[in-house]
């Protein structure tokens, strides 16, 4: 699987316009960021789960891509339970660590929130081809084409980083500085190749810029698009679903009187 030409199985979600996916994830994220409470996060997560079923990712891909979220959520939860703002009955105390009813509830809310914000973003992006996303950003959102395409071209160069990194590390071993040296040696073995990689990529970027200009890129003249990016009815439905999830989550939380506006 490659980041730039991902193997995306045909599915309803895969056919949607990437800009619509971006919008949905943004709407849901923004709504959830406004409050820390377990009801709004939990409701949103439940509703999203229904949507994730038709995302077209295989189970293996799903767990692989979303692994960081599953690790982060319990971690954030525990930190909050231990150090979160205390309120209500004291459940357990050790030094300056205290667990109260309030901090336990906050912990639950934070854990659910990390999942509810993290999962849809990863899943929707895993089913999006970067080239299609760039087409959408430039044609649908009318972002400046020079920047969108320049960014896309830069993204392509990452594919070569892994290969370069491999050579750079082997070369360090060949030159006698590939092991030993304790912590300082280890730091050198990270920052050394990282700097070489920066040099190589800036050079490559400069050359790529020349190659792009040589193909007429970069002027202010209008350009055409070989791949049209269209917004269809299904995309509007998706954005509608996004608003619905956000609305229902907030609505239920307000009704349950757990809604706590972050700036209040």
């Amino acid at each position: 699987m490659s980041l730039l030409t991902p193997t995306i199985r045909p599915s309803v979600v895969a056919r949607l316009n990437p800009v619509a996916k971006l919008a949905v994830a943004l709407i849901v994220s923004c709504a959830l960021l406004l409050s820390i409470d377990w009801v709004s996060a939990g409701v949103a997560l439940l509703l999203e789960a229904g949507l994730l079923l038709w995302c077209g990712l295989s189970a293996r891909q799903f767990w692989l891509r979303t692994a960081p979220v599953w690790i982060a959520a319990p971690m954030a939860m525990i930190t909050t339970v231990l150090y979160g703002e205390d309120s209500g009955a004291l459940l357990w105390q050790f030094g300056f660590i205290s667990v109260t009813e309030g901090s336990a509830q906050l912990g639950l809310a934070i854990g659910l929130r990390v999942l509810a914000i993290g999962l849809p973003g990863i899943v929707l992006l895993a089913t999006t081809d970067p080239t299609d996303l760039a087409d959408g950003l430039a044609q649908v959102l009318r972002l400046p084409a020079r920047f969108v395409l320049g960014g896309l071209a830069g993204l392509r160069l990452v594919g070569m980083f892994i290969e370069d990194w491999h050579s750079l590390t082997l070369a360090r071993r060949a030159r006698g500085v590939g092991d030993g040296g304790g912590l300082r040696g280890a730091a050198r073995r990270f920052f050394g190749p990282a700097f070489s990689l920066l040099v190589i990529s800036v050079r490559r970027g400069s050359k790529l810029a020349t190659a792009m200009e040589a193909r007429g890129f970069g002027s202010d003249e209008p350009r055409t698009w070989a791949r049209p990016s269209r917004v269809r009815a299904a995309d509007a439905v998706l954005v509608g679903i996004g608003f619905a999830i956000a609305g229902i989550a907030i609505g239920v939380a307000v009704w349950a009187e757990t809604w706590s506006f972050i700036l209040a």
Binding site: L4, T5, D129, P130, T131, L149, L152, A153, R156, L157, M160, R204, G205, K207, L208, T210, A211, M212, A214, R215, F217
Partner: peptide
């Protein structure tokens, strides 16, 4: 140009 790797623009 000379370098094959830095002339490919798209995926």
């Amino acid at each position: 140009l000379q370098d094959p790797d830095s002339q490919v623009v798209l995926a």
